[in-house]
Design a protein around this nucleic acid. Structure first.
Lengths: 294, 294
DNA sequence: CTCAGCCCGTGCAATAACGCACAGAATCGC
DNA sequence: GCGATTCTGTGCGTTATTGCACGGGCTGAG
């Protein structure tokens, strides 16, 4: 059953009853309607209409087509309404992907957004691999660093996360408190695998300490944080997280060159839609209240 | 939502995931697919797909279209199957229209036909006006006389109904029994309006008797028959009906030039279908058993 | 790193679809 | 009964759609 347009033509003929009338409705010449009907009947091998001087009347097959195409027409009209309205409405799914380790910041934002727009189903994806906006894997991405983005992505800076060096109180009691960067000899450190991170503070650490001083490494930020809290070594923790955590001692305060700039990225096709715009503005508004960032 | 073909194209793209793949399925060039998508998105004002190097992935709107068009495709396939199979199957409605007054003959035929093909719903239409086959008002028509049929009608002779002149026994007791055609003076006759009948025996009667001898006239054959039986006058009754009716006296036996040839008429478009063929052959077979016809 | 394979996108030529005009036929109203 | 109207059907010229070929980009394997 190729050529749905011919079905649509036959539908109008069955509905109106005349070729001329259907042609008017369809906005084409009546000769076109005749040719569509002829072609469709030839392909089906059955007469859809009885031709007579007052018009076309549908046969049984024509009536069957009429009812099916009627339903189709209704559904397409509803579909068009939904699609056209979708750009205007804030509803459906909103998929946000972000770097790991900032879910404390994001989760309240997502929840308040969903509270504001109850028709939206929110999904937050965090994974090692980078989700591709141009594959439609997410509507909004929150990424770190200055990495080059793809062509069609709209990038805007969000906040800069301040990160400091911390250690657990239990670690300090056991290994002592280094006075400064020059006093790091003999200390143990917790860091991410260099293969999976491009965070500036981790890169800095690799230059500041010996490789064998990295006592513990992991890929997941939460795992690193847990390791520091457990006393495995000195490690980087975002200031906003360290402040709320007891038993953490600041070794070195946040430095500007450790700061990780967060970028808010959307695909250009989705950037214009009201749903994405709503979330973007909501996120930027919420980010103003984030402490210990800038 | 004009242009259903573009929806069909978009449906295949959403299903397959690539323009090239959809083009293969649709049997068109991939450039055509791209143009269809572009046109459809432009008309809807919404992106249906995210374009990337590995193909097209559907957006939310695209997924919506996919599910709607999927259902449409299924329904169209089923529709095509029904329509193509309809010509082969003996089912659905079968509308027969006939001249009034032969329902005794037809009803058993219709009933046995329905018994033979239980999926058929049979309708018998008899009315003063002639139902038009080319308007699709009936599949089969049984008509009388030699009237010219329209262009696309298939005509085949059925039987010739023998008609005689009869009177009720009560009439004969009151007015006497005419010995022959020459003895009609003073007798009363029952006849159809000349405006509504072209039956040869009625026309003959108008020449054989004086107009004021027509004591009773009607349009409906059953009404005429009832009038004759009630003793209103001498009238024509088909031999097959008169034989089974008590209290009827034959005035004149059937004559060849009174015979009314019945024609079996079908529209050329429907004549080929198996359903109509089945009924036509069933009717002709049954007609062989009709008594007092030839 | 390079090459092969598989996508998408666009200018240009061919082709199929379309609109136009006219003819024929039937119906409606006067 | 007869013109007026309406509808279908077809040949012809035009337009729009399609197919083709080529270029470019991305991906994944060797």
């Amino acid at each position: 059953m190729d050529n749905w347009d011919e079905i649509r033509t036959a539908y109008q003929v069955a509905r109106v009853g005349t070729v001329s009338g259907a042609a008017d409705v369809l906005g084409v010449h009546h000769a076109t309607v005749i040719r569509h009907i002829d072609a469709l009947e030839k392909r089906l091998g059955t007469k859809l209409f009885q031709r007579h001087s007052r018009g076309y009347t549908a046969t049984e097959a024509g009536h069957d087509l009429l009812s099916v195409a009627q339903a189709t027409d209704d559904q397409f009209i509803q579909l068009a309404g939904r699609i056209k309205g979708r750009g205007e409405s804030v509803s459906g799914e909103l998929i946000v992907t972000s770097i790991a380790g900032i879910s404390d910041l994001l989760t309240p934002v997502m929840l308040s957004f969903q509270e504001k727009w109850p028709d939206v189903r929110v999904r937050l994806l965090t994974d090692m691999r980078i989700f591709r906006l141009d594959y439609g894997e997410a509507h909004v991405a929150i990424r770190a660093g200055d990495a080059q983005e793809e062509q069609d992505n709209v990038v805007q800076p969000l906040v800069r996360i301040r990160t400091g060096l911390y250690a657990a109180r239990s670690y300090v009691e056991r290994f002592g408190l280094p006075a400064s960067e020059a006093d790091f000899d003999g200390h143990r450190f917790v860091s991410a695998d260099l293969t999976t991170t491009r965070a500036p503070f981790h890169r800095w650490l690799r230059t500041a300490v010996q490789p064998d001083q990295i006592a513990y490494s992991a890929t997941e930020p939460a795992a690193l944080e847990q390791a520091v809290i457990a006393g495995a070594g000195i490690g980087f923790i975002p200031a906003f997280r360290a402040e709320g955590t007891p038993n953490l001692v600041q070794i070195l305060p946040p430095r500007d060159d450790w700061e990780s700039p967060l970028r808010l990225v959307t695909h250009v096709d989705l950037h214009r839609t009201r749903k994405v715009q709503a979330f973007v503005s909501h996120l930027k508004e919420s980010a103003k209240d984030w402490k210990l960032c800038r």
